[in-house]
Amino acid sequence: MAYQNLISEIKEGILYLTINREKALNALNKETLTELAEAIAFAGKTNEVRGVILTGAGEKAFVAGADIKEFSDYSGKQGEELAQKGQDAVFNAIENSPKPFIAAINGFALGGGLELAMACHMRIASDHAKLGLPEVTLGLIPGYGGTQRLTQLVGKGKAIELITTAGMVSAVDAEKIGLVNYVVPQTDLISKAEEILNIIKQRAPLAVAAAIKSVVSSINDVNGYQTEISEFGKCFETEDFKEGVSAFVEKRKPVFTGN
């Protein structure tokens, strides 16, 4: 896959996606969002990809926000369309992907950057990272799911505080409030994400996808329990279920094929 604003590479079942606009602090412009949408769709339908690590180029920023110049003169209708398109093609697409996405936050994750990280299923931050949603300083609010996902992760009170004050939190504080899973030194950032995905790679791929779908459904659907029940039932029809049970009985490691 050749992109202008992304570096994309598959190694040992992991798709590494790096937003490569270091001079612009990896800000999300239209072209970058379009390329991200393509890469997310590719990951979801490609069996070779078992998980995705998403990060930013350099050590200053994961993504320092959206490219404000692109929508500074938008009307209300255009703004609504911008948010809808971005959420559908990128942010919701990540959250609803059957493949686990890990955001490796290597610096500033602000505005659309933090929204991108929150759309991922897990987040790991370098110890110098700073996170925040500063949109109200521009007379805006987060438009790529930030008000919803931050509330889901840290609770209503803390979400309202962070959004309305536009304050940044350190990586350590982000871990304390549940915004990130782990904080590690910059040099260990990618290896920590790899460590998690290498464990997930040993599990049944269809079951992993079903688990992600069910967890996301607990937040986004009226009856997440029913989604879980349905996905649980579907697992019984897979070859991986038969293999898992056989391996358990025979006291050996299972060999899953994703079927």
Rank of each mutant, 00 (worst) to 15 (best):
E250I: 01
L54M: 10
Y16L: 03
K23I: 02
E175T: 06
I219H: 09
F101W: 15
K77H: 10
S246H: 14
T257H: 11
V184I: 04
L114V: 04
I94V: 07
N47S: 14
G224H: 09
N5V: 12
P205W: 02
R50C: 06
T34N: 09
L153C: 05
I177F: 11
Q4G: 11
L6R: 12
I105E: 00
I177W: 10
V154P: 01
E31W: 00
E59V: 12
F236A: 14
V255F: 12
L150P: 03
P100G: 08
V136H: 05
V215D: 09
N92P: 01
L15Y: 13
T187M: 10
G146Y: 07
P205E: 03
I124C: 01
F256W: 11
G79Y: 11
Q226T: 01
D67K: 12
L162V: 09
A104K: 15
Y144L: 05
G157R: 10
I199V: 15
I212G: 01
E195D: 08
A27R: 15
L150D: 05
E228Y: 12
N20I: 01
V63N: 02
I105Q: 01
R50P: 00
I212N: 04
K201T: 06
A166F: 11
L206N: 13
L179S: 01
A174V: 04
I94H: 09
A27E: 14
T147N: 08
G233W: 11
E95D: 04
M122G: 09
A103E: 05
F256V: 06
F232P: 12
A2P: 01
G145Y: 05
E231W: 07
A204I: 08
L179M: 04
S246I: 09
T164Q: 14
Q87D: 03
E194N: 13
I219T: 02
V49Y: 13
G157L: 08
N5I: 07
V255D: 12
T257L: 13
M122Y: 13
I40F: 13
L82S: 00
I7T: 06
N96P: 00
E70K: 03
N20M: 06
A39I: 07
T32H: 01
N47C: 05
I219F: 13
M1C: 03
V183E: 05
A193I: 06
A204S: 09
K253C: 03
C120N: 04
A37M: 06
E80V: 03
P254K: 04
L116R: 01
L54A: 08
E70D: 03
I229K: 10
G65P: 06
D88T: 14
E70A: 02
G143D: 07
S191P: 05
P142N: 01
K253F: 07
E194D: 15
E250W: 02
D188A: 09
K45H: 08
G113C: 07
K156I: 09
E59N: 14
A247I: 02
F42V: 00
S214N: 02
E81S: 06
A61F: 04
Q152A: 11
I14G: 08
H121L: 04
E35H: 06
Y3C: 07
L179G: 00
V154Q: 03
G113P: 02
D188Q: 11
G51F: 12
E239D: 14
K158W: 10
S170Q: 07
T164M: 12
G65C: 05
P134M: 02
D73A: 13
E95M: 08
I53Y: 07
H121S: 05
I68D: 12
K30L: 15
G58M: 09
G56L: 09
Q202A: 14
S97V: 01
F62L: 00
E237H: 07
